[in-house]
């Protein structure tokens, strides 16, 4: 008994501190570290840097327009065949600034300075000049976290806009993604434009994603293509958040 009392007397403070520390860390983890992200936003607010990457952004805008035109032409042809297709309106988005990038080398995420107070909901999609950038995965009161297309866990249902071949695209941590086709023998060639697929549950259809850079048809179990994103994901300063309710 005396032994235990001595031991407790010596180590109680350390034990309590360790317990407190672990408890606090666990609580923060359960709340998705909201306090930390919000604090970061508060501190980062006055230091919104303005660095120039105008050229790249302008090029990306031109590319986006080209992609859009191809997509619209394709849709037009399909419409002539079908005659009855529901038209999609373009809702107003919320512009927000990028205030931080992910805190771990393995994941590709952004922190933006808009949250539930500004009307952002989980599942909204993030657009930037060039097309699709990612989607909102966590929302806090004045900030939210966006999962970028280049994140290895981000999977997007996409479609080759020229031939309507579909597949799933995964991020590669760079400005490139890997598209795995559903068909054995897709008709696709380098330079083809890739848009989100109408079957995608997470994104609205027809948003430009990127362009096919190279194709590997011999890849097992399904053919693959390397996609170049149309958005310069490494240099995002602003993103436009469009509300989107994934159909469950």
């Amino acid at each position: 008994m005396q032994l235990i009392r001595n031991w407790w007397g010596r180590y109680s403070l350390q034990l309590i501190l360790v317990g407190l520390g672990l408890g606090a860390a666990w609580t923060l983890k359960q709340t998705q570290a909201e306090v930390l992200v919000e604090t970061y936003r508060m501190i980062a607010q006055p230091f919104q840097a303005e660095y120039s990457s105008r050229q790249i952004l302008e090029n990306a805008q031109v590319l986006e327009l080209q992609y859009r035109i191809t997509e619209i032409e394709q849709q037009n042809q399909n419409l002539r065949k079908l005659l009855n297709v529901k038209s999609l309106g373009t809702p107003e988005g919320i512009w927000s600034g990028v205030i931080g990038r992910s805190s771990d080398a393995w994941w590709q995420q952004l922190v933006i300075n808009r949250g539930t107070n500004q009307g952002i909901k989980k599942g909204a999609i993030a657009l930037a000049s060039g097309g699709l950038a990612g989607r909102v995965t966590n929302v806090f009161s004045n900030s939210s976290r966006i999962l970028l297309l280049s994140d290895p866990t981000a999977q997007v249902g996409v479609m080759i806009s020229r031939t309507r071949n579909m597949g799933i695209m995964r991020g590669q941590e760079q400005n490139l993604g890997v598209l795995t086709f559903f068909e054995r023998d897709p008709s696709v060639k380098p330079g083809d434009i890739v848009v989100t697929s109408p079957h995608s549950g997470l994104f609205p259809p027809g948003i430009p994603v990127g362009r096919v850079r190279s194709i590997n048809l011999n890849r097992q179990p399904a053919p693959e293509a390397i996609i170049e994103f149309s958005v310069p994901l490494g240099q995002l300063e602003y993103v436009k958040i469009l509300p989107f309710d994934p159909p469950e």
């Binding site: 360790v18 520390g21 860390a25 983890k29 709340t31 570290a33 930390l36 771990d104 995965t137």
Partner: peptide, 29 residues
């Protein structure tokens, strides 16, 4: 032991800052 406990606590913090809850299996720090 204190070092290990601190490591676990920091791992939980970093998990909280990076894990998006939509995914099931994500490695922990």
């Amino acid at each position: 032991l204190i070092a290990i406990a601190t490591g676990i606590a920091l791992g939980l913090l970093q998990d909280g800052m990076t894990i998006t809850d939509s995914q099931a299996l994500i490695p922990t720090h």
